[in-house]
Amino acid sequence: MSLSPQNDADRNASVIDAERTLRLIATLPAPEGIADRVKSRLQDAPRKAGVIAWPSSVSGARWTQFAAMRAAAAAAIVIAVAGGAWELYTHIQIAPEPSAVATPQRMDGGHGGLSAAGAVRKPQTLDGPVVAAPAKSDEDKSDELLPKGNGAKPAGKKVRTPGLTQR
């Protein structure tokens, strides 16, 4: 796509104008005292990360004294750690290894598991469920064999007389 000279000039002018804005921002003065504030913050900043900060401003005459103290402190730490380790070593007794491992004998003759006590499960699903008839008591049986004294007969029941054949 070709642009007309007028459009091209407009585009260039707008870009130049935009670059002028960027240049204006790039030349803005910094706030007063920024260098002093940065320096004071640098002085407050920790110099170097360390677990223990040993005194750095020690004069030459006392340097050997500090070195001896550091050595003594290091030796004390080593002795404390070694003593603790020895204490643990002497108090903890490791159980001796058995010479042989005895396997417990099985009480069920080696079949494993619990015994079923000879019970055999017969599922009722093949022939259909069987409903057990209620068991008759002895009194009911004698009632059927002997006539009732009051002549009353139980409904739906046939009375059988001994010696007679029912037809």
């Binding site: 921002i25 803005l28 003065p29 910094a30 706030p31 920024i34 940065v38």
Partner: peptide, 19 residues
């Protein structure tokens, strides 16, 4: 040396950051 760098370039760095 660091203080000299701050004196010399803090303003320039500020302008870069502000832009």
């Amino acid at each position: 040396a660091l203080a000299a760098l701050v004196d010399q370039y803090a303003t320039t760095l500020f302008r870069v950051a502000f832009s």
